[in-house]
Simulated assay, not measured.
Amino acid sequence: MTSVTPADRRRATVTLREALRELSLQLSLLNRQVGAHLELKDVDLDCLDLVNAHGPLTPSALARRAGLHPATLTGILDRLERGGWVVRERDPQDRRAVQVRAVRERNAELLGLFAGMNASLDQICGGYEQAELELLAGFLRRTADAGIEAVKELAGEETPRRPKSR
């Protein structure tokens, strides 16, 4: 059995960081293409993704999650609402408050644009055992949590944590 040296571990870690940067870049480019097909800006698509994942949300909660100034978010919500992607509704518990809800009927259009990537991911995942997939998912969750902490540190404010997954 061969032992792993500290230099081997550093090289492997650097390779992993480079792969994550490349993945981040490619996903950003994919999102930009999807946004262009939908006539949405990158930030619009980010906010739509947050509303789909965590909504309905108040505009202030969405602004915090997206790291945006509330005035900036107003313009984004106006564009998303005009495009039929979200609706602003009165909060049933507090009629003075407004919540932003994604229009679920539009999800098929959005998912259709990601179909090629999703099919590729299914094929890639098919080459891994269940335990390996769980290990990879755990790594990615922990990496996302590290990203949340880095954003929080750079912003100098409290950033909401992603719900813990099993």
Results as ranks from 00 to 15, higher is better:
G84I: 09
T15L: 14
R79N: 03
L16P: 00
L62D: 04
L40W: 00
P92I: 12
L57P: 06
R65V: 03
S28A: 15
D49W: 07
E39S: 10
L30S: 04
R79W: 00
R79A: 01
R17I: 15
T13W: 11
D94P: 10
L62T: 05
R32K: 08
L30P: 03
E18A: 15
D78K: 14
V14P: 01
A36D: 07
G75R: 13
T58A: 14
T58I: 06
R96V: 13
L40Y: 00
L45W: 00
A66D: 02
L57D: 07
L50S: 03
L68R: 14
C47P: 01
D42P: 06
I76L: 01
V87K: 08
L29A: 13
A19L: 14
R90E: 11
E18G: 12
G84L: 04
A36L: 09
L40M: 04
V86W: 01
V87L: 12
L29H: 03
D49T: 15
R95W: 13
R65M: 12
G84T: 09
H37A: 13
T74P: 05
G84Q: 05
W85V: 09
C47N: 07
R17S: 13
L27I: 05
L20I: 13
H54I: 07
G75P: 06
L50G: 02
L68P: 02
Q33F: 03
H54P: 07
A66Y: 07
L50Y: 06
A19I: 10
R88W: 06
G35L: 01
H54D: 15
L40Q: 01
T13G: 08
A63T: 07
G75Y: 11
G35Y: 00
L23G: 12
R64W: 06
R21V: 15
L20R: 08
Q26R: 14
R88H: 08
R82Q: 14
E39V: 07
R64L: 15
N52H: 14
D91Y: 10
A71V: 11
A53Q: 12
P92S: 10
V43H: 01
S60M: 13
C47S: 04
G83V: 05
L62E: 06
V34K: 00
P70H: 06
